[in-house]
């Protein structure tokens, strides 16, 4: 499976479309011997109600500068939320289905990613 297939795929819950996959959040664990960076695994998906190219990133990181542009991009991606992997019912070619009781979390990357 390719991560690219998930990006911008429609997200459905109870047969109704609730948005699109704005991004796929990965968890990079501490690396094991024989590698320098841990093998990332899918932590969850960031769902945005609109099909915007919202990866400019303002809506999820602490960056708020330059002020007006950041406000615009945050407004454009308003209503985005994070759904954790266990809450996903199906990941297929034509989209992602959420479980009926899927919990919606804040999409903010609270800690600055130490990239």
């Amino acid at each position: 499976m390719f991560l690219g297939d998930l990006v911008a795929a429609p997200v459905l819950q109870d047969g109704r479309r609730v948005g699109y996959v704005a991004d796929v959040r990965l968890l990079v664990p501490p690396h094991t011997p024989g590698q320098r960076v841990g093998t990332p695994r899918v932590y969850g998906i960031v769902v945005c109600p609109r099909r915007t190219a919202s990866f400019v990133g303002y809506e999820r990181t602490g960056v708020r500068e330059p002020r007006l542009l950041a406000a615009f991009f945050r407004w454009r991606a308003r209503g985005s939320f994070l759904v954790l992997w266990p809450d996903l019912a199906r990941v297929g070619e034509n989209g992602v289905d959420l479980r009926l009781d899927a919990r919606r979390w804040s999409a903010d990357l609270d800690s600055r990613p130490q990239l």
């Binding site: 500068e65 330059p66 002020r67 600055r112």
Partner: peptide, 28 residues
């Protein structure tokens, strides 16, 4: 111009060398 203005404020790229406030006002 837009991507440069955005990335010039991104600590992932510039650490503490991000744009000062005045530069951002002029930039916008």
């Amino acid at each position: 111009y837009l991507p440069i203005l955005i990335v010039a404020n991104d600590p992932d790229y510039l650490g503490d060398q991000v744009n000062p406030r005045l530069l951002n006002i002029a930039g916008q």
